[in-house]
Write a protein that binds this DNA or RNA. Structure first.
Lengths: 158, 158
DNA sequence: ATCCTTATTGAAAATGGTTTTCATTATCAT
DNA sequence: ATGATAATGAAAACCATTTTCAATAAGGAT
């Protein structure tokens, strides 16, 4: 079943209402920004993007909306080691390819990789089933992250 | 080759010297604390543990030492969603079993799981080789993290 | 449509883990 | 021992994120 991001349908709005939250312009706009980028964004990135067309929407609202989205499992929150969190639509709600992150600890570069994903998806499925059974956990999100030195930084490091 | 944590040998001290750093009492003590716990600790946890026997060692030094250890790949830094980072010896330098983390977004509980590790180790090895070849990355650490709701929080959530 | 309850919001202030600064001390090659 | 300089502690600064609080907007009931 394809994901319907549009208004009115069982999409984003339905998720909010289903959890007892109201559907507001701010929320719609913030989701619109997240939907239309191919990059992980910080709260401030999102705030700036939103601000162009909706200057009345404040940074606080961006943070609050992101918190809700993360809680509902619609958005993933990442920590790449600089001090600001990055956000991405969860795979099920995104048009972006399934991927994980490769982070350079020196320069901060982040590569989205999509290789070797098939085996990984299968492993996740199996692990997830086992873990939720054993620990009674309801798993909402999963992440793999490699870090080290990217090509450039590796070379400079005499 | 087993890891020699002891003084003098090619262990911790050797790592520091090899990177051009000095070997100090603070560093030795902080590593001692990390080595003797089975839990991921925050900088402040470590500070308190260290403080009992070495009240002269300050929190700043703990942070600085942890940064070095993370940079050298000897320690892993985790973000479990509360706002403080947690630290653990990297697997190669720890007596603790290979494991990953299962984080409850509601109550913050973290479960270390060791199931399904064999397939995962193999997948990591393969992925890592492919990625470092394709992107020129030197990978220093790898993490998998699941999050969602633990058994208790799941139940309370009517 | 109009009320009314209450969730949502923006601006400003507060928070608090982590970093910086800087003067002092410890390490270690010579 | 000596000197160069890396490491350290205390206090101050930093800054992403949260909290506060009064004003506004959503949406069910009327």
């Amino acid at each position: 079943m394809p994901w319907r991001g549009g208004k009115g349908g069982p999409g984003w709005e339905g998720h909010f209402r289903g959890c007892g939250y109201r559907w507001t312009v701010s929320r719609e706009v913030i989701i619109e920004v997240l939907s239309s980028t191919r990059h992980h964004m910080s709260a401030e990135d999102i705030y700036h993007a939103v601000h162009k067309d909706y200057p009345a929407i404040g940074l606080t609202t961006v943070y609050r909306t992101l918190d809700l989205l993360v809680d509902m499992g619609l958005v993933l929150k990442f920590d790449f080691g600089d001090k600001r969190a990055r956000y991405e639509l969860a795979e099920e709600f995104s048009t972006k390819e399934h991927h994980h992150h490769l982070v350079c600890n020196r320069c901060g570069r982040v590569i989205d990789y999509t290789e070797f994903i098939d085996d990984e998806v299968e492993l996740f499925k199996k692990t997830e089933k086992g873990l939720s059974k054993k620990y009674g956990f309801q798993i909402k999100s999963r992440m793999i992250q490699f870090s080290g030195l990217c090509g450039n930084c590796n070379r400079e490091q005499k």
